[in-house]
Design a protein around this nucleic acid. Sequence first.
DNA 1: TGATCTATTTGACTAATATCATAGCAAGAA
DNA 2: TTCTTGCTATGATATTAGTCAAATAGATCA
Lengths: 224, 224
Amino acid sequence: MHMIDSEEWCALNDVDVTATEEAAICSNYETGDVIFYEGDDVKGVYFVKAGLVGVRKADLEGNSTLLKLAEPGDTLGYRPLAADQPHRASAEAVNPSIICFIDKATVRQMIGENPALGLNFLKRAAKELGDAEEKFHESVTLSTRARFAHLLIVMQDRFGHATEDGSLQLTLPLSRSDMAAMLGVRPESVSRVIHELEGTGITHFAEREVTIRDPNSLMDVFIK
Amino acid sequence: MHMIDSEEWCALNDVDVTATEEAAICSNYETGDVIFYEGDDVKGVYFVKAGLVGVRKADLEGNSTLLKLAEPGDTLGYRPLAADQPHRASAEAVNPSIICFIDKATVRQMIGENPALGLNFLKRAAKELGDAEEKFHESVTLSTRARFAHLLIVMQDRFGHATEDGSLQLTLPLSRSDMAAMLGVRPESVSRVIHELEGTGITHFAEREVTIRDPNSLMDVFIK
DNA sequence: TGATCTATTTGACTAATATCATAGCAAGAA
DNA sequence: TTCTTGCTATGATATTAGTCAAATAGATCA
């Protein structure tokens, strides 16, 4: 994944994208390695070249929620940079990842010279804000079961594929605990919801291999 | 409240701010009047000149959550405009308000001619995104009591004032039901939390008049 | 003033999810 | 193999907040 192929950085011309890629420092992260911590000052942004990164928020009692997953092409840390705030969440490799750091002076220079880049980040922030507001609304409005169904649907979109018989296949990128952290519930509750979905025959879970036998019924579970 | 005094529009020069204000169509809204509906196409943005506006999201069962309050100087509708999405929430006057509509062609032209305006909206979106993520985290992590304490603290910051004896005074801009909608809980639960806080002596509620007798204890309630 | 309306509070009960304890199970290490 | 170790699942119980119904309190209006 090159920066030029990303939603945001594609605004740069050849010269600038080359300059930015040259200024970028790419590193390998193993599963579990931390990219930045909540509370850290923002030194720049991180472009995910390969792998999968989780963005987490923790509280005092040790509860942690998983706010989002970043895939190749995504840029991390632009939000606190734009807001002029310290990091309000930490980022950690969920899978082995290659991540390129671009210091904030370079980012600011590029945005200054290419207004379209700033607008792309505005668009990204605006979309994410809509999603975050939706997520809040769902968390207080829907049951754990419905939210898990929604998570499955989203995961299917991002990580799954259809099969010839109309069912959907999916390899979950996350453990049960991490899915629980995405929903803001306990892992036991996720286990119970999975057990329940199995009972209805809508889905089949084998470790992280999921078959969605009846996508329409799963949609119904999400809505209710 | 003039546009030039707002966090975002202050980026415009005198000529452009005058042009924008001339393009703006200002209207009066009574309490309860709707400014736009969830699902509507975005026709432009709304600058709140006076009053108080609530941004709401409803679901199929009629549950509604109050996502945020917009005060004079705030601009509504820029998020879906920037994201190129329809409105994902509705807006409604909580108090009688004066609101100026600016059509999206004008907004886009101004942003095109003044990159700083776009960056101001980026900063705004980035801050709101941080808040929204925090709100999700709180909603799944903290008790109703703690979240209500936090709401009180935020309300105090925005609408309250200190008194000479060290206690804090506040006139709530919202009904109990609307506070419940901000927290994503039922009005009965808000009543019970208020009753409980009264019992501890930390706060005193008389209709919408609130006295926070012991701000430190209120902070403790928030944290736990 | 009394009548009515709505918002709020209170109480009894129920439902949903967390908590805690324990057990199973797969993958890797000795 | 056998022993860990960590993740997942299950059962029993506790806690929290929701639901429903009724009472109360203000506000408005005739």
